[in-house]
Amino acid sequence: MDNNLKETVRVKADNINFFYGSKKALNGINMDIYANKVTALIGPSGCGKSTFLRLINRMNDLVTSSRVEGQLLLDNKNIFDKDVDVVELRRKVGMVFQKPNPFPKSIYENMAYGLEIKGVKDKKFTDEKVFESLKKAALWDEIKDRLNDSALRLSGGQQQRLCIARCLVVEPEVILFDEPCASLDPISTRKIEELIIELKQFYTIIIVTHNMQQAARVSDYTAFMYLGDLIEFGPTEKLFTVPKDKRTEEYLTGKFG
């Protein structure tokens, strides 16, 4: 925790409990997530890492009969407060999903969607934002000549980078990655990982992954979760080399998971 003091906390989880119906899925989670860093959430299936991630942009709102307790502070404002506009929140907190999910529309329409729903009519402004985001997502050179093609005709890896670019258009501050490489081949995976590292200079990034090597490669901080508890949280290097908790060590060495 040596250099933590210099860093700004962007997202702070304060004693979060989460229930699906009567089943408790998260157990008093406390966690600080730092600005312009990549934080990885790891742990075996069902440990609650995706559930936690989806709280940060309130995707859990879509799940009926779920309930949350505690506070999740984004820039010191509790996102569960009644006066928080969930639409505003989701513009601030972008999300990239497990399976690439481009809309069955053209590449350009996919990119412009975020602005369109905001009511932006200025074509020039939209163009600028779209092009800029495609460049940021390192996709521009590959697709600049076929912006009007269907996004479904891109390869899986390109689709996922398009989804990343699509979420950049609305200028988020935090980006959530929910196992973004789960359905991709190693080369595409490598490209996405490079992109994540590239993007952290502009955004705060939280990534859920099954793949411990991936966590080690891309993240600055890692949180290990198990059965709804946060077992251990710390700088990635430390957590991987000298885990404090026995369960973390067992998970990292492949004894379970």
Partner: peptide, 17 residues
Amino acid sequence: PQSLREASYALGATQIQ
């Protein structure tokens, strides 16, 4: 697919949008 709805919500769309 539900994933399309999620993508849309995650970009800040309302339900009716």
